[in-house]
Simulated assay, not measured.
Amino acid sequence: MFTATALTGSKPEQYAELAAQARALLHGERDRTANAANLSALVYHALPSVNWVGFYFFDGRELVVGPFQGLPACVRIPLDKGVCGAAASERRTQRVEDVEAFPGHIACDSASRSEVVVPLVQGERLVGVFDIDSPEKGRFDADDQAGLEAIAAVFVEALA
């Protein structure tokens, strides 16, 4: 049985601990739905001041909601809309300090004020995105981005 431990140390050290917990949680499991569900729960409960953590999977045309923690979400997101669509289409992490200032932002949860979306790419194939929202403007910094990118990499590695 997996048991999460409290995070300690600097923010980079906390994310290193969280990535190690993610690796242990996903060890030996290749099912993307199971892994996305467990990672969503792990990150949602580990990070302060987040109100949504989850996955959108690319179905060949658009992003479709996968496992998540938080309020009900938008089900489908076109690649030309919102922060998730930008991360997927550009295949580059989007860190947004104020989602209301982001052109084309999709307000699935009106309480969200800042967001980080990490594209999930396996080889050349877009798998989807890992999306984390906060009710606080400017909640995410470069350390958060790097830490969440490392956790997303653990997810993608588990797919192989």
Score class of each variant (00 low, 15 high):
residue 2 F to C: 08
residue 3 T to R: 10
residue 5 T to N: 07
residue 6 A to L: 10
residue 6 A to M: 08
residue 8 T to G: 00
residue 9 G to P: 00
residue 9 G to I: 07
residue 10 S to P: 00
residue 11 K to G: 02
residue 11 K to H: 06
residue 11 K to I: 05
residue 12 P to V: 01
residue 12 P to C: 13
residue 16 A to C: 00
residue 16 A to T: 10
residue 19 A to W: 11
residue 19 A to L: 13
residue 20 A to P: 01
residue 22 A to N: 02
residue 22 A to D: 02
residue 22 A to L: 05
residue 23 R to C: 04
residue 25 L to A: 07
residue 26 L to D: 04
residue 26 L to C: 15
residue 29 E to I: 10
residue 29 E to R: 11
residue 29 E to A: 07
residue 30 R to A: 11
residue 31 D to K: 12
residue 31 D to E: 15
residue 31 D to S: 13
residue 32 R to Q: 14
residue 32 R to D: 07
residue 35 N to T: 00
residue 35 N to F: 06
residue 35 N to G: 02
residue 36 A to H: 03
residue 37 A to Q: 09
residue 37 A to D: 15
residue 37 A to I: 08
residue 39 L to A: 04
residue 39 L to S: 03
residue 39 L to R: 04
residue 40 S to N: 05
residue 41 A to V: 12
residue 42 L to D: 04
residue 43 V to C: 07
residue 44 Y to R: 12
residue 44 Y to L: 03
residue 44 Y to I: 01
residue 47 L to R: 10
residue 48 P to L: 09
residue 51 N to F: 05
residue 51 N to G: 12
residue 51 N to W: 08
residue 53 V to L: 08
residue 54 G to R: 04
residue 54 G to P: 00
residue 56 Y to E: 05
residue 58 F to D: 08
residue 60 G to W: 02
residue 65 V to E: 09
residue 65 V to F: 09
residue 66 G to K: 03
residue 67 P to D: 14
residue 67 P to N: 09
residue 69 Q to K: 11
residue 70 G to W: 02
residue 71 L to G: 03
residue 71 L to A: 13
residue 71 L to C: 00
residue 73 A to N: 11
residue 73 A to E: 04
residue 74 C to F: 01
residue 76 R to D: 01
residue 77 I to M: 03
residue 78 P to G: 10
residue 79 L to I: 03
residue 80 D to S: 09
residue 81 K to F: 08
residue 81 K to Q: 15
residue 81 K to H: 11
residue 83 V to I: 15
residue 85 G to V: 05
residue 88 A to Y: 14
residue 88 A to E: 06
residue 89 S to C: 10
residue 89 S to R: 12
residue 91 R to W: 10
residue 92 R to L: 13
residue 93 T to Y: 06
residue 96 V to S: 05
residue 96 V to G: 02
residue 97 E to Q: 13
residue 97 E to P: 00
residue 97 E to L: 15
residue 99 V to R: 08
residue 100 E to R: 13
residue 101 A to T: 11
residue 103 P to S: 02
residue 106 I to N: 03
residue 107 A to R: 10
residue 107 A to Y: 04
residue 109 D to K: 06
residue 110 S to G: 00
residue 112 S to I: 07
residue 114 S to K: 13
residue 114 S to W: 08
residue 114 S to G: 08
residue 114 S to L: 13
residue 114 S to M: 09
residue 117 V to P: 10
residue 119 P to W: 15
residue 120 L to I: 14
residue 121 V to R: 03
residue 121 V to D: 05
residue 121 V to F: 11
residue 123 G to C: 14
residue 124 E to H: 13
residue 126 L to M: 11
residue 127 V to R: 08
residue 130 F to V: 04
residue 130 F to M: 02
residue 131 D to S: 06
residue 135 P to D: 14
residue 135 P to T: 04
residue 136 E to N: 09
residue 137 K to N: 02
residue 138 G to Q: 05
residue 139 R to H: 09
residue 140 F to E: 05
residue 143 D to M: 07
residue 144 D to R: 05
residue 144 D to K: 00
residue 145 Q to I: 00
residue 146 A to W: 03
residue 147 G to L: 01
residue 148 L to H: 15
residue 150 A to G: 04
residue 152 A to N: 01
residue 152 A to Q: 01
residue 153 A to V: 02
residue 153 A to C: 00
residue 153 A to G: 10
residue 153 A to N: 02
residue 157 E to H: 14
residue 158 A to N: 02
residue 159 L to R: 12
residue 160 A to W: 09
residue 160 A to N: 13
residue 160 A to Q: 15
